[in-house]
Write a protein that binds this DNA or RNA. Structure first.
Lengths: 165, 165
DNA sequence: CGCTTGGTTCACAAATTTGTGAAGTTAAGG
DNA sequence: CCTTAACTTCACAAATTTGTGAACCAAGCG
């Protein structure tokens, strides 16, 4: 009932991919369960799964699902949708949304910048250390600016190659 | 003896910056000790400190220093230098090196791409899930390519603003 | 050659994180 | 209203990670 029966795929193969991909995400710093849940969503045909489906596919408790999706939603890697007229909650990976979230660490970078600015003033802009911090700060500011342009270019290329969503 | 006495700074203020900045890095996924060590190096005037100096400033054991610098060196965030004719080991943050390492997750991305490619074949390039994975893969390939150009632009801007190293 | 200083490795205790079962909460459906 | 389905929250046990002291190693120096 989970997938439109159009494409019957080997669940073994799907699971192998999910676990392998999740392992890479874990290595990159994502907690284990969120990584697996994210992998399962990515590998689902519709890109939407309910909590129950996630728990079943990954063989984890409802509590684990709950924790994982809360984390992912906070990171903007999935969106939750309350299907009206039903108690089922559904989670979705948007084609765009998710990788923006992964790379877009905007908020994180912003806090680094704040800390660096604080450092420059408190160590003195004229001290050698102050200069090093200032340069680092300039780098992040540069990246922040350039990144917007880069994402815009991607959207253009994407639309051209995959069509609009 | 640690710093050239030219700029006498408030060690309190330095420590505050180090801890605050380290906290941000930790939040971004870096382990605690490496983050603190990195902060201490960033905030030092020369950008070079010995193990002993690091241990003293951060109030941590030699073992902790050893572990932290091993980690940082592996991530290419610091380089270790064996000062010839002395047993002292010195650790350095290069102006460039370090932020390239932080952003440049090249190896990580490469492994994501591999996992995604595997997924596309095993789920079928024509299935909806396969198409989603393919699009994700295309995104990372795009980023990888663009990122090189972006770094080149940064080096140019940097040289202009801060002079060559 | 030994002594001594600077670092590394190892085993372990402490702290943190993870995932679970069980109890609690909310709202649909009779 | 009362029942029940679908989560969520909580307390706790298990596993993992962290940082330390202690033993160990390597290289200058006398």
């Amino acid at each position: 009932m989970a997938e439109p029966s159009g494409t019957a795929r080997d669940p073994e193969a799907v699971s192998r991919f999910v676990e392998h991909f999740a392992a890479q995400l874990v290595e990159a710093g994502l907690p284990r369960m969120p990584a697996r849940v994210f992998g399962a969503l990515l590998a689902s045909d519709t890109g939407v799964l309910t909590s129950a489906e996630l728990g079943e596919r990954l063989r984890i408790s409802p509590a684990a699902v709950s924790g994982a999706v809360r984390y992912l939603a906070q990171q903007h890697m999935v969106s939750r949708e309350r299907e009206p007229g039903s108690r089922r909650e559904r989670y979705r990976v948007h084609g765009d949304q998710w990788y923006e979230a992964l790379t877009n660490r905007e908020a994180v970078i912003r806090r680094w910048e704040d800390a660096l600015r604080e450092g420059v003033t408190s160590l003195g802009a004229d001290s050698p250390a102050g200069r090093r911090l200032a340069e680092t700060l300039a780098f992040f500011e540069f990246m922040e600016k350039e990144f917007r342009a880069l994402m815009a270019r991607w959207r253009a290329e994407r639309e051209e190659r995959f069509g609009r969503r």
